[in-house]
C-alpha cells in the first residue's frame, strides 16, 4: 500500500519540508537572533511565542507531526539511496548526498535539541536565555549546535531547490540553475542569522 502510493508520500514529504517545517525553522532562527540584542530582548521574543494562543495545537500540527513524518520518511529515503559521488562527482550529485547526510544528522540533532529544551520544560525547567547560555558552557555543545544549524540551513535551502523541481515549477536547465543560486543565497543568509544567534548565547 505504501509502495503504491509512494508518489503521493514523496510529494507530501517535499511539501511539508517547506510548509510548515521550512517556515518554522526560519521563524525559529529569527527569534533566536533576538539574542544578539541581549538576554532581555531574547526572553521577550521567546515569551511572545510561548504565549501564542492555541500553542499546543500549533506545536503539534505545525511542528511535531509534519516534522516526524518528514524525519522518519526521510530516513527511509536516505537509506534506500545508493550514493555514488565517487563515480559522478557532479555538483548535483554531491547535493543529493549531502541532503541525505544532513537529514540523518538533523534527526539526531533535533531529537537531542528537543530533549534538552522542550522536554526539560515539561519537567519544570524554564526555556530562556540563561538555559541556552548554560548549554553553551560546553565547547562540544557549541560545535554540535553550529553543525546542527548549518545542517538545517543547508537542508532547507537545498530542499527549496528540490521542492521547486519536484513540483515541476523549475523545469528548464536555466531555471534550475537560477534556483540553485537563489537557494545558495538562502543558505548563506539563514546561516549568518543562525550563527550570530549561536555566538550571542555562547
Amino acid at each position: 500500500m505504501v509502495r503504491e502510493s509512494e508518489f503521493y508520500w514523496r510529494r507530501l514529504h517535499s511539501l511539508l519540508g517547506i510548509i510548515p517545517i521550512g517556515l518554522f525553522v526560519t521563524q525559529h532562527l529569527i527569534i533566536n537572533h533576538f539574542a544578539t540584542k541581549g538576554a532581555e530582548s531574547f526572553n521577550t521574543a521567546a515569551h511572545f511565542i510561548e504565549n501564542l494562543p492555541f500553542i499546543y495545537f500549533l506545536e503539534w500540527f505545525v511542528i511535531y507531526i509534519p516534522l516526524m513524518f518528514h524525519a522518519f520518511y526521510g530516513v527511509y529515503l536516505a537509506f534506500t539511496s545508493k550514493n555514488n559521488v565517487q563515480r559522478y562527482g557532479t555538483f548535483r550529485n554531491w547535493m543529493f548526498m549531502l541532503q541525505r547526510v544532513t537529514g540523518v544528522f538533523l534527526v539526531i540533532f533535533i531529537a537531542w535539541h528537543i530533549y534538552e529544551t522542550r522536554i526539560q520544560k515539561l519537567f519544570g525547567a524554564e526555556v530562556n536565555y540563561d538555559m541556552m547560555a548554560e548549554i553553551f558552557q560546553s565547547p562540544f555543545m557549541i560545535v554540535f549546535y553550529a553543525l546542527g544549524i548549518l545542517a538545517a540551513t543547508f537542508h532547507l535551502a537545498n530542499g527549496v531547490w528540490s521542492f521547486l523541481v519536484t513540483w515541476g515549477l523549475a523545469q528548464s536547465p536555466r531555471s534550475q540553475k537560477i534556483v540553485t543560486y537563489v537557494t545558495l543565497g538562502i543558505f548563506i543568509i539563514l546561516s549568518v542569522i543562525g550563527m550570530r544567534a549561536l555566538f550571542a548565547f555562547a
Binding site: E4, E6, F7, S81, N84, T90, R92, N93, V165
Partner: peptide, 20 residues
C-alpha cells in the same frame, strides 16, 4: 502510470542521468 509504484516519485534529483 508514472504516479504509481516505481514511478516518478522515486526520483531524488541527483541529476546523474543527464550526465551519463
Amino acid at each position: 502510470a508514472l504516479m504509481t509504484d516505481g514511478g516518478l516519485g522515486e526520483c531524488g534529483n541527483s541529476q546523474n542521468c543527464v550526465v551519463a
